[in-house]
């Protein structure tokens, strides 16, 4: 695999990724509910976007009109979004411990009314790409050059609306719209190949007229290279990122005999083991 990042940068991103994984596990176990495994698969994707020099944003000015947008279409990965926003400086890291608690803006699924850095209220799957397309078209109307990154789950692309948005993005050639599929191979009740097989995923996007890349979604160099290519593409761009659900704590999930572990926090003891793995 080609190296895109300097050794220092890679080490820095790895360290951030580890901290974010710890936040995800600690916050969901403390909350007693949430979707840690669905959050863990997309850590490197989000870390590259926010800390790898891909996205421009201002934590002190969340509504900055020229900011790049990150829309978490798979809203159940909210613990990942919150951990990334906290590490980026939007709010103190300590607030992550208020996840899902009444009064906290860190709701079970992202709510843009409660947390200004959240671009779209999500949690009903399939809708983020259309919303991202709206942001991308607004950039064109206003003559701004920001980009819109939309993170989707691989189960989520069962939803027909995703493909409505994919077709419309081609029509308007919104090259500032970049989708990332967190292809971890699982959805709520089982493997995506069994629940509703959408393969070949990359081929589907290609026939919808998108610029398509398939990469290892945990390889920081591959992610950096993919985003560099996507931002230069003339067409709307999708990165199909092969990932592992529960990445980083696979051995703990194996012990729990649940490699999907969808929508379940780690029990206290397992969480301690997981945090030790990530220390």
């Amino acid at each position: 695999m080609a190296t895109t990042l300097s050794d220092t940068k890679r080490q820095e991103l790895e360290a951030i990724a580890k901290r974010i994984r710890r936040h995800i596990i600690a916050s969901t176990t403390k909350a007693g509910s949430g979707h840690p495994s669905s959050s863990l698969s997309a850590v490197e994707i989000a870390v590259t976007l926010f800390f790898g020099g891909v996205m421009r944003y201002r934590p002190q000015e969340p509504g900055w009109p020229d900011r790049d947008r990150f829309i978490l279409s798979k809203g159940h990965a909210a613990p990942l979004l919150y951990a990334v926003l906290a590490e980026a400086g939007y709010f103190p890291v300590e607030e992550l411990q208020t996840l899902r608690r009444i009064g906290s803006p860190l709701e079970g699924h992202p709510n843009r009314k409660r947390l200004p850095a959240v671009e779209a209220s999500t949690g009903s799957l399939g809708q983020g790409l259309s919303i991202g397309l709206g942001h991308a078209l607004a950039a064109r109307l206003d003559g701004r050059d920001y980009r819109v990154y939309v993170l989707l789950g691989d189960g989520e692309i069962d939803e027909g609306q995703v493909w409505e948005a994919a077709a419309a993005a081609r029509k308007y050639q919104v090259s500032n719209l970049i989708a990332i599929i967190d292809h971890n191979g699982y959805q709520q009740t089982g493997p995506t190949s069994e629940v509703l097989d959408m393969e070949p995923i990359a081929e589907k996007w290609r026939t919808f007229g998108w610029d398509v890349q398939e990469i290892d979604g945990h390889d920081l160099d591959a992610l950096a290279a993919a985003f560099a290519h996507a931002t230069a593409a003339e067409a709307p761009s999708v990165i199909v990122a092969r990932t592992v659900k529960g990445k980083g704590i696979e051995s703990v999930l194996k012990e729990l005999k649940d490699e999907n572990m969808h929508g379940k926090p780690l029990p206290e003891e397992a969480a301690q083991k997981a945090l030790a793995l990530l220390s």
Partner: peptide
């Protein structure tokens, strides 16, 4: 196109901007 769900999602993004 004939895609009401997408219409509303796009409108949501435009309104947010």
């Amino acid at each position: 196109g004939i895609a009401e769900s997408n219409m509303v999602g796009i409108a949501s993004g435009l309104a947010a901007c």
